[in-house]
Write a protein that binds this DNA or RNA. Structure first.
Lengths: 228, 228
DNA sequence: CGTCTCTTTGAAACGCGTCAATGGCTGTGG
DNA sequence: CCACAGCCATTGACGCGTTTCAAAGAGACG
């Protein structure tokens, strides 16, 4: 059903779980399909079954800021549960993706019948809020190199795929998207990754990145100054 | 009771309102008193009656990032309503302040009896989340000058006091705090404000700032390049 | 009335964005 | 299956907005 356990459905009894899943309908997305746009009326709550969504915002100058990637088990549109009017960001499939969908009405019925569901969704929102604050702080106080290193570690840790070469990030990721994720330019990212690849910290091919030396990356993420 | 109407209590009938307020107890804070610290167990929900709270986070390098200022009618600790474990930031009184307080248990009883209260609190959280994202985006794409100009306008608009000289920001605000609010250094803020004061855009005395020419500030906030 | 916080101002260094130009890989369509 | 079109990545040079460091002045609060 779902490759990872979902925080949204955690701690639910089999009965609730079954009823909730039975009320959903499934949607298939191709790469680059847009599930919902920033500012759209928030009418549907989603849970990723397989694949990945890129959640992003568009700056008025046209540049894209990536908020996070949602993989199997992750929710999108929690705002629907708390009565918000519009989606705060755009969700785009970054690879072929399947999501479960519930209408606002259905979701409210389910939450009324199962308070734990409401609590889970709210907890996710709170956590996302906290992460946004942390990122705001990191962007303000840390240098680009540290932020990129940490972003790679987080992406690899959150659903990374173990391979012989190391821990591989689970979804396609361009330099530009990585730049949007840490608020820098794609050029700076490209330079850093090129250097790290030469040093054996990572391996990179097309739109995929594998972390080979997490310890060294963690050192870069923590240090304010370093050699080379 | 409260100088401004509170979004948290908006749309409630007089009966609910009275019951909710009757369940609160009031707390007085002196300048620099800390109401709650980032990471503390979230056990109490607060509503500002009078005065102002500064909500901030401490970076690991010791610098302070200011999230926002909470004035009369604003809530702090909404996380309590959605089951979060700890406060995401520190609340400090930036002037003599009075707050209303509800324990977690009391709040949950009230929300169960009055769903609109839960919805209001959740809506506030959603809005704060959205504002954090907007700020993240502005920090990434705009220059310091624009961000400071916009911050002044927002602070003046949110509870500003009209005076003969212009719209005065409602609470004490140091250069350092303003810097923390827009993610820059206090030096850069000082330079900008000195220039703007010389140009008659603002007036500044000790820890108080008055906006004299909002239109000119708005122009600075919107423009990517300008003269002088 | 002194101490402490807040503020100002200058000079210098630097990280990173910007611009430009080229090369590579991919998925699509003939 | 091959080729073209388009997206993705690389690399160097340059400039500029901001931070950093230092040192001194001003106002406020106890």
């Amino acid at each position: 059903m779902m490759r990872r356990s979902s925080p949204t459905l955690a701690g639910l009894g089999p009965v609730d779980r079954t009823r909730i899943l039975a009320a959903a309908h499934s949607i298939a997305l191709a790469t680059r399909d847009v599930l919902a746009r920033e500012g759209d009326p928030a009418r549907v709550f989603y849970l990723v079954e397989a694949g990945h969504l890129k959640l992003s915002r568009l700056a008025h100058d046209g540049s894209e800021m990536v908020i996070r990637f949602a993989g199997p088990g992750d929710q999108f549109g929690g705002i629907v549960a708390v009565g918000g009017a519009t989606y705060p960001f755009t969700a785009t499939a970054s690879e072929p993706t399947r999501v479960l969908a519930w209408s606002r009405e259905t979701l409210h019925d389910l939450m009324a019948a199962c308070p734990k569901l409401r609590a889970n969704i709210a907890a996710q929102i709170g956590q996302n809020f906290n992460e946004a604050l942390t990122r705001l702080q990191e962007t303000a106080t840390e240098r680009v190199e540290q932020r990129v290193a940490r972003a790679l570690l987080r992406l690899a840790a959150h659903g990374g795929v173990p391979t012989t070469a190391g821990l591989s990030i689970a979804h396609p990721l361009t330099r530009s998207e990585l730049a949007g994720l840490v608020s820098t330019s794609l050029f700076t990212v490209s330079r850093l990754l090129a250097r790290w690849e030469a040093d054996g910290l990572i391996a990179s091919k097309h739109r995929h990145i594998t972390v080979r030396n997490p310890a060294a990356l963690a050192a870069l993420a923590g240090a304010s100054r370093e050699a080379r």
